[in-house]
Write a protein that binds this DNA or RNA. Structure first.
Lengths: 134, 134
DNA sequence: CTTAAGCTTGACGCTTACGTAAGCGTTATA
DNA sequence: TATAACGCTTACGTAAGCGTCAAGCTTAAG
């Protein structure tokens, strides 16, 4: 019935090594079932892995990801804990907004330097070099 | 005439330790002048540091940042190298766009979970708990 | 004169996030 | 039956990015 995945299934789907997935389990980010010795991952594990990898690309530490997962579980079991989770989410939201500003600034700088480069390529030999390196 | 900065000036302005700035010099990201033994940073050094720190917040490695600085200098000296720099910039631009998508996705997930939390906080005791943990 | 503030160069230490064997069990295909 | 193919654990290795002394120079203030 419920879809399950082997460790290599997930590794291939998300382009990581099995070592990475085992490491995430060691760090408490994933809690796959066992079938004999082998790990059996549920769609929930898959969702967590997806989130974890996205978080990692955005610079979250594994321990912060674990903490968020734990807070989420706590919040669902005990509504009193929901406020704690909410606060942590809000903190991260602010950081993510700042990160987006960083990205926009960086994209602006990249297009600035790219334009300088294109001018250099076009003006080669024609006029004086007005470009300035970083 | 030209504005200069001490190592602590820059450390305080950007909220990093002097150790970090020295480390960046060791890694070839900064090349301050010397006045006796002390480092003297120009506005150009300051600009590089600012860029480097932004890059770091976005997950650039120090060696990639150094490479970009070097390519920029090469491009300005020799227009033939501008194409190389341009290509590297384009690669990073693509990654940054992807990163922005990650941020948007993550912000979406955060507001989803935040809404679940708020519902939990409001519905406490009233109805059944329909929230699902990650 | 000496004490403190700020600078320097080593150089070892630490954390994170895995990589990389080593050595072994299970299943399936040739 | 052997030889992959896939999985497991244990455990040392490693690269990046600084932290953290240690030990010493210099210059201004008390």
């Amino acid at each position: 019935m419920a879809q399950t995945y082997s460790i290599t299934d997930l590794a291939q789907e998300f382009g990581v090594t099995t070592r990475t997935i085992r490491h995430y389990e060691e760090q408490g980010l994933l809690t796959p079932q066992r079938e004999g010795m082998s790990r059996v991952f549920s769609t929930r594990d898959r969702g967590r892995l997806k989130l974890a990898l996205r978080g990692k690309r955005l610079g979250f530490s594994l321990s912060e990801i674990r903490e968020l997962f734990e807070l989420s579980s706590l919040a669902c079991e005990d509504p009193k804990q929901a406020g704690v989770f909410l606060a942590r989410l809000e903190k991260r939201r602010v950081l993510l907004e700042q990160q987006r500003e960083d990205i926009d600034a960086m994209l602006g700088e990249i297009s600035f330097f790219a334009n300088q480069c294109r001018r250099l390529l076009i003006d080669t030999g024609k006029a004086k070099n007005t470009a300035n390196a970083i």
